[in-house]
Simulated scan of single mutants.
Amino acid sequence: MTHARPLRVLLVDDNLTDRLLAEEAFGLIDRPCDLVTAESGEAALKLLTHPETLLPDVLLLDVNMPGMNGFELLAKLKDTPQLLLIPVVMLTTSAIPKDVSQAYILHASAYMIKSASFQTSLEQIEKFIEFWIQARVTTRSEMITP
């Protein structure tokens, strides 16, 4: 099934370089995709709970951030009725088994290890976008029951 509108992705990462590289990588992918970034868990939560925000189809979330870390944001998202169904993919440098387990315990949809190579990152992002274009539902209202 093809979708008329671009895939909406929110990337939450405190590292400016990682956000800029992601913006560049998403720009190079030949698929309709809108990337929005947030520099912290707090900023992401504020954006997501703003009444005029178009919610993302999927959220890419770093684990290790100052203030509210990725796990704390993930827990808040899953405790907030209007945000709980947004798929969350942890995108992090941490391959620590405890972190992977914690992500799934908190209902992350997937756990991806950031690549150190830009070319490999580009390939990861391309596969990520392709998957989520196919996996997303047409409208959020179809997912939410009254």
Rank of each mutant, 00 (worst) to 15 (best):
R136L: 10
V36M: 07
V137D: 08
V12S: 02
D34Y: 01
L21D: 08
V88Q: 01
Y104F: 15
E42A: 14
F118L: 10
A135I: 08
V89D: 00
H50R: 04
I86E: 00
M65L: 09
L84I: 11
F118Q: 00
I133V: 14
L85R: 10
S141M: 07
E24S: 07
E123C: 01
A95P: 00
H3Y: 05
D62Y: 15
S101V: 12
L84S: 15
M112V: 10
K46G: 00
A25I: 15
P6C: 06
W132S: 05
D62W: 13
T37P: 05
M112H: 13
L47W: 01
T92I: 03
D34F: 03
E52Q: 09
F128K: 06
M1S: 13
E142M: 12
W132A: 09
T120I: 13
T80C: 01
D18F: 03
I144C: 11
K127S: 12
I144K: 15
T17Q: 12
Q102L: 03
I29Q: 14
S115A: 15
L35H: 03
N64M: 10
T93I: 05
L47S: 02
A110M: 02
F128C: 10
A116Q: 12
E142R: 15
T138S: 06
T2F: 04
L28I: 02
T17W: 02
A25C: 13
Q124P: 04
D57T: 12
V88S: 04
D79I: 02
L7H: 02
T145E: 11
A95Q: 14
L20R: 14
T80Y: 05
D18T: 13
A75T: 11
D13R: 07
I125Q: 01
P97Y: 11
L73H: 01
A22R: 11
S94P: 11
T139W: 03
E130Q: 13
M112E: 03
V63E: 02
R19D: 08
K98T: 15
L10V: 10
I133N: 05
